[in-house]
Amino acid sequence: MPPRPSLLRTFKGPLVEGNPVTVQILGICSALAVTTSLDTAVTMAVSLTVVLVLSAAVVSLIRRHIPNAIRLIVQIAIVASMVIVIDQILQAWFFEISLRLSVFVGLITTNCIVLGRTESFARQNPPLPAMIDALGNGLGYSAVLIVIGAIRELFGAGTLFGLTVLPLAEEGGWFTPLNLMRLAPSAFFLLAGLVWALRSVLPDQAEPPETIPPDVPEGR
């Protein structure tokens, strides 16, 4: 059995180097849909991190008792129960935000990050490392969400958390909001830019070219 990586490495790995959104391509659906404003992005990030840590803990605690054949259904049932609890909490105390998040809290159930981490890490590790790993992945996801949410709200409406940062032209300021930032395509473009920036800083994350040009002068 290979030695376990230290808890600090388990925690730091998924923050930037193995970021679930930009490197593992997991959980992109919700990362884009809820980022039109910063407060929904933060709510979503916190909900996902809590669900991830709790379900990793539960799956890891009962990992020796789950029969292999039905493990997917067991894990999904655990995750879905956690999501229902979070959904009820949001509806009870943060009703405004829960209305704006609409179905996306429910969709944490099928967020690939949650199932991916319980399936690949929590199922083979004791509760403490499993929870640390889940926390690291949750925070890595949160970082991407908050960056994109902040950019979209700042340039789309001139506000952060609903407070005016850039005074709008129509209210006597100088800033004309970019309507594109409030629409769906901008999320794709921003995420593409983020991935590009990250991979320029960390070149070893770049994917190999799909075809290699032939070694003739015309091929270059």
Binding site: T22, F188, F189, A192, V195, W196, A197, A206, E207, P209
Partner: peptide, 20 residues
């Protein structure tokens, strides 16, 4: 011939954005 950082995931996001 794409920039190295844009290969794979990056360009796919850009494409999806344009289709969107």
């Amino acid at each position: 011939d794409l920039p190295a950082g844009l290969r794979g995931l990056g360009i796919t996001f850009l494409l999806a954005g344009m289709m969107s």
